[in-house]
Design a binder for these strands. Structure first.
Length: 815
DNA sequence: ACGAGACTTGTTTTT
DNA sequence: CAAGTCTCGT
């Protein structure tokens, strides 16, 4: 499956090694070096601990920094760049610096600016793999068969395109969903695989064995559309470098230093990309520095290969490996809880995070129970207001959820409370219908060959151009191998269409011709406004009297406003295709709501982690599809969540959650049982609704040998369960209370874990249950029913109305 | 060609 | 439950 690795040209096989270039600005470098010799370390180096300083100052040769959560990873990266710049070893344009998100890139630019002063122009090669890929491709598009004004398709475009292809093959697009195939293609591209290279099994798995064919057809279609999908932004540069060694050499000469953030999240394609650029002839130092944390690898589902970390020393011989283990962010309790949790994973590289904070006033990690998600949101809202009264800033608080649908409940609650909040990465601005429509207009003006944009808006607003017209046009275009807009221009000269359709199309063509003419002469924001007005798109929403229409108009205004920061329509389009988030108002004091995934790299004073229930977190699908490693990735996600907190971390779980619109009774997440009692408080349950406090969480379901035999039967689950009970049988030592507390386990090997504390839950289930099978009981949500089975504290009840459910015994009363 | 209403369908995480 | 798709009547 790793195909593609072996044919990467290694540069130590190149016959004529280049000689090392002299420093670009010798004077400054010499001065800096002299300064260092006199022990006058530059300001930016002071305040680094020894390991950090080593990571910053080891400029020659490959360096791998294993940086635990909160150990100053970003600081090391930015300082390292500052160090390279101020010692004159390279110009900003000679440093390639890759981040995982655009947000991280932005932040890094800012921080470098602070360190170096704004004298240094923004680094042109600092960005995500994707944005740097685009930059490379725009320069060398012709080498991979594109024109440099190629379009970048988003997921939505891709799915529509694939649907067309599936239909064109005469396949049933119901039976073979385009969305699924889009996912498969994405997976292949993440592994760096061309249609020819995909495994036979994969190819056969879709559309009666036509998988490979469809993939190839898709790539062909992209080429004729002069378009790229996200995966191509990685693959095309790889292809380009492989087949054009001279171009590759140009970039070898250019990039003197390469830095990669979040290295644990790189996928195979990104890895190949990186290796191509980083390889150097023998004797020339490979100045590549990767920073990562295997415990924070949470993008396995997107093809990330944690193994890339393990391979590093192999692929870059002589690499210096530096561990950052001193945590500056969190209290000992937060760190202790996180460490104990993550210790349940196997196959870790093993870092030992430690902190010197031992403030007795620091609160433990709090675990709270709530009846349902509504109450959860209400209670979190209350806690936030309480903190606010104690003059904590809302900006310092965050709610981190597993899945974005959880956000809504909090939003609803905060709206009624009048609490400011900010959703990060939620339903994206640029994914809204009206924004996508508007963007399609702009795209088509800039890139007349963009058929997908054309099809999207020819008949929006309604112009009497229905399916039949579009199909005719489509066939006409295909037959002549020209874009649809061009086909439209031609076809209105013929009498192929009915007069009504012909008139409608005529207007569209005339409009676009006019707008294209204005592209160079009109200010882009004005042109954009003009396009929306003249096309009738604005009017369409003005006439719409539905509830959301005003909001959509507002969004369109916002869209135009956000264009002001760009020089041209084209520049704006590029930005949008890569950066799906709209910038938010930083000045407003507001609680952040976001997914755990998008929280990586951030930190907050107070963190709320709702929804710790089996099935949601760990997510059932991760368990089903990922098996054991799926579970471990979920656990890392939990680890990421907890370690975002500096001072307070409040975890919540509910007993009832609405899934697919119907209420389901849920069980507390197994991760709760994996938290150490020494660092965790199970909050006294409050008054609310009759009596959940008494029962439920006070008991561990893991007291029984196989408590999940009915509910969980997937193979992955069974393995995980097996593993878990092994761990529980071990004697878990405990040590704590030194000035420097070490938490977690390190070099000591997998069999001798030193994890303090014990499972949170106190065992009470050895006591006989207060219920017996057949008892008639009442449940707050489900009403009356009869107990049909009892396992420890869990009851299976046949409810009169709600059917059979499994609930914790604390939630029901005998009738 | 188009809208309204019935119907199915499915919700992890993202560049 | 909601969003998206499909079917039917106009």
């Amino acid at each position: 499956m790793m195909s593609g690795f072996d044919d990467i040209p290694f540069f130590d096989e190149e016959p004529a090694p280049r000689k090392q270039q002299p420093p670009a600005t010798g004077g400054i470098a010499a001065r800096a070096m002299a300064a260092r010799d006199r022990q006058q370390r530059p300001d930016y180096l002071s305040g680094l601990n020894p390991e950090q300083a080593e990571a910053v100052e080891s400029l020659d040769g490959p360096v791998l920094v294993l940086a635990g959560a909160g150990t100053g990873k970003t600081r090391v990266l930015t300082t390292r760049i500052a160090h390279i710049l101020s010692t004159g070893r390279a110009f900003p344009s000679q440093i390639l610096s890759v981040t995982f998100t655009n947000k991280a890139a932005r932040e890094m630019k800012e921080r470098i600016g602070v360190l170096v002063g704004h004298a240094v122009e923004g680094m042109p090669w600092l960005g995500t793999f994707h944005s740097i890929g685009v930059k490379l491709l725009r320069r060398h598009a012709e080498l991979v068969g594109l024109r440099s004004d190629f379009t970048i398709l988003d997921t939505d475009d891709v799915i529509r395109l694939i649907k067309q292809i599936i239909q064109a093959e005469g396949l049933d697009d119901k039976r073979w969903p385009a969305k699924q195939f889009a996912g498969m293609i994405d997976g292949w591209k993440n592994k760096g695989l061309d249609p020819a290279q995909i495994p036979e099994g994969d190819a056969r798995a879709f559309a009666n064995g036509k998988g490979r064919e469809l993939y190839a057809a898709y790539q062909n279609r992209l080429r004729t559309l002069n378009a790229c999908d996200f995966g191509d932004l990685l693959l095309h540069p790889i292809r380009m470098f492989r087949s054009n060694p001279d171009v590759l050499k140009e970039y070898h000469d250019k990039f003197r230093y390469i830095l990669v953030d979040e290295y644990q999240d790189t996928n195979t394609a990104q890895y190949m990309w990186l290796r191509l650029l980083a390889q150097r002839p023998k004797g020339v130092p490979q100045n590549v520095c990767c920073v990562g944390d295997d415990d924070q690898s949470i993008y396995g589902w997107r093809g990330a290969e944690v193994d890339n970390i393990l391979r590093f020393e192999k692929d870059f011989p002589g690499a210096k490996v530096i561990k950052l283990e001193r945590n500056y962010r969190s209290t000992e309790h937060i760190l202790g809880a996180a460490a104990h949790l993550i210790a349940h994973n196997e196959g870790r590289l093993g870092k030992t995070l430690f902190t010197e904070r031992t403030d007795p006033d620091d609160e433990k990690v709090q675990v709270h129970a709530a009846w349902d998600s509504e109450e959860e949101a209400r209670a979190v809202g209350e806690e936030i207001e309480q903190l606010q009264r104690k003059s904590h800033k809302l900006n310092d608080m965050a709610i981190l959820v597993r899945a974005s649908f959880q956000m809504r409940e909090f939003e609803d609650r905060f709206v009624t409370l009048g609490l400011n909040y900010r959703v990060i990465g939620g339903p994206r601005f640029y994914e809204r219908l009206e924004i996508r429509d508007a963007m399609a207009y702009f795209r088509l003006v800039c890139q007349p060959a963009d058929d997908l944009a054309f099809e999207r808006i020819v008949n929006t607003p309604k112009r009497g151009l229905g399916d039949t017209t579009i199909r005719t046009l489509h066939d006409y275009a295909r037959a002549r191998d020209i874009p649809m807009l061009a086909a439209a221009t031609d076809i209105i000269e013929t009498d192929e269409l009915k007069p009504k359709a012909r008139k409608g199309l005529f207007d569209v063509v005339a409009d676009f011709r006019r707008w294209q003419g204005l592209l160079e002469t009109t200010v882009h924001t004005e042109l954009a406004e003009q396009i929306l007005d003249e096309s009738g798109y604005t009017a369409m929403w003005q006439n719409d009297k539905s509830a959301e229409a005003p909001g959509r108009l507002e969004n369109l205004k916002e869209l135009i406003r956000s264009m002001e920061a760009f020089e041209s329509l084209r520049g704006f389009l590029e930005h949008v295709s890569l950066v799906m988030d709209a910038e938010q108002n930083e000045n407003l004091d507001a609680v952040s709501i976001m997914t755990l995934h998008s929280a990586k790299g951030l930190e907050f004073d107070t963190v709320f982690l709702p929804g710790w229930e089996e099935g949601l977190f760990p997510h059932q699908r991760a368990l089903d599809e990922g098996g054991r490693s799926g579970l471990e990735e979920e656990r890392r996600l939990a680890y990421v969540g907890i370690t975002r907190a500096k001072h307070r971390c409040h975890i919540w779980f509910v007993s009832n959650r609405r899934i697919h619109g119907l209420w389901q009774s849920t069980l507390p997440s197994r991760f709760l049982d994996e938290l150490p009692i020494t660092h965790v408080d199970v909050a006294e349950s409050e008054q609310s609704y009759g009596g959940y406090g008494r029962g439920g969480y006070g008991q561990s379901r893991f007291d029984k040998a196989d408590p999940f035999q009915n509910t969980y039967s997937t193979p992955g689950w069974k393995r995980a369960q097996q593993n878990r009970s092994d761990a529980t049988r071990d004697n878990w030592g405990s040590r704590s209370g030194h000035a420097v507390e070490r938490i977690g386990y390190g070099e000591s090997g997998p069999r001798s874990r030193t994890i303090d504390g014990e499972l949170v839950a106190k065992s009470t289930s050895t006591e006989p249950s207060r219920f017996t099978v057949g008892d008639r009981v009442f449940h707050m949500k489900f009403g009356n029913g009869n107990i049909s089975a009892i396992e420890g504290n869990k009851l299976t009840i046949d409810f009169d109305k709600a059917g059979q459910k499994r609930v914790l015994d604390g939630f029901v009363e005998k009738v």
